[in-house]
Write a protein that binds this DNA or RNA. Structure first.
Lengths: 231, 231
DNA sequence: GACATTGGTGACGAATTGTTACTAATTCGC
DNA sequence: GCGAATTAGTAACAATTCGTCACCAATGTC
């Protein structure tokens, strides 16, 4: 203890292999889905997350944007880092360290490339163990952040109905919400503004379309809510 | 777009230099403080975060524990990953990629080694730009998580008074809390239990000591609170 | 036109929160 | 000793927020 010779500043950096693994999430048919790509026949699993090593000088989020663009045809608007992993779990490219990045794509986004497919989170095919961990952690991060950050709006097209928005929240939170309470809270937050358009979706009364347009925040911070603890 | 040749699975991993940079946080004299170590005379800044490259086969959190142990003489009980950075900002060891890890140390923890010192977050000395970013992000992560996770208990000794606990929350949240509301919420959460001991702290009535002992949680999830958004 | 279906809102009671005011136990100064 | 000062802890009330029910609105189906 207190061994001066082990004070870390004196250590030298080592060479490592690094991968950026991207979890593209999007709501599909009443479930949150992940974009997977077909692996080469030589691989142990038939599917994997899109991934790559960052180019020299390329930032991690830039790499995630590039990787997403190659698979989805469009760079995403929202990133959330899931964290770096260097446990012993196997990675398809045998990278020493993986940086997992969650990316949100709106419900209606274009079809992916030929060798890519959406899989509902609840029924994923076999993945390399590290990819499995990254997917689980990405889902957990997104579910946990949905209450802190306007994530849900990134899973919708630029205009949406309030029922759409409530549906996304229900998907992410995994439980039903009360319509009146949901709308009252939304109203009080000044996060959306109505447009002039209405959407008729078959039967039932047409719904007004809204857009995400956060106004100045009132600084009404509350006391501590211990019952929000998630551990 | 849709260029099949750029589908990322075909890429090969590259060699990168990786650093684990540790932000040890602890409450000192009414302020959250960071542990810094004196840099060699050749370095551009006189102080830096403790850091090192992970050993082969060593997990990132294991590396953080080892690095903390070398500086503080004790391995910490709590880690929170701050994220991986690979922007162009300068790192003291010129690592390509940094993984920032926040570590919490209770208020009374032993003195650090000779070349290490606590600095209040508000008055840090000059640091390498990437270290500066990591410190800021670590503070932000901890402040944001304090409402979601029992972080605050990691900044206290195993037994503590309720005023101590409230003080830590006020430190982390940056605002005063009402005593009665705070205790009522704490009571309802079943997170602490009283001990038989009391602490007399000079003047005033002695305070009962409590310990962190979370009981079974009641699953009372609430509606969406849009006003908790932090962006 | 009756009815099913989806959108949208008012209002009321229950629960939670913010606040004030009080009591309790100790040290300090005289 | 004794009152003032100081810190701990709690009861109770008012204001606010939340969950829920009930209802009206606008559309498609039969």
């Amino acid at each position: 203890m207190r061994d001066r010779s082990s004070v870390p500043i004196k250590a030298a950096v080592r060479r490592t292999t690094l991968a950026v693994d991207v979890v593209v999430l999007s709501p599909r048919i009443d479930a949150l889905a992940v974009l997977l790509i077909r692996a080469p026949a030589s691989a142990r699993e038939r599917w994997s997350l899109p991934w790559d090593a960052p180019q020299p000088g390329e930032g991690l989020e830039d790499a995630a944007a590039r990787i997403t663009g190659a698979v989805l045809g469009a760079a995403p608007a929202f990133f959330e880092q899931v964290g770096a992993l260097s446990d012993g779990k196997r990675h398809p490219g045998d990278a020493d360290v993986s940086v997992g990045i969650a990316v949100l794509a709106p419900a209606g986004v274009g079809l992916p490339v030929e060798d890519a497919e959406w899989f509902p989170l609840a029924s994923l095919p076999a993945l390399a163990p590290r990819h499995r961990t990254i997917v689980d952690r990405a889902a957990a991060v997104v579910r946990q952040r949905v209450d802190q950050s306007p994530l849900a709006f990134r899973l919708l097209s630029p205009t949406f109905t309030l029922s759409d928005l409530q549906g996304v929240y229900e998907l992410l939170l995994g439980r039903r919400l009360h319509k009146a309470s949901f709308r009252r809270a939304l109203q009080a937050s000044y996060l959306v503004e109505p447009t002039d358009e209405w959407r008729s979706e078959g039967r039932g009364r047409p719904a007004q379309l809204f857009r995400y347009a956060p106004k100045k925040r009132r600084g009404a911070r509350r006391g501590v809510r211990f019952d929000l603890f998630t551990e």
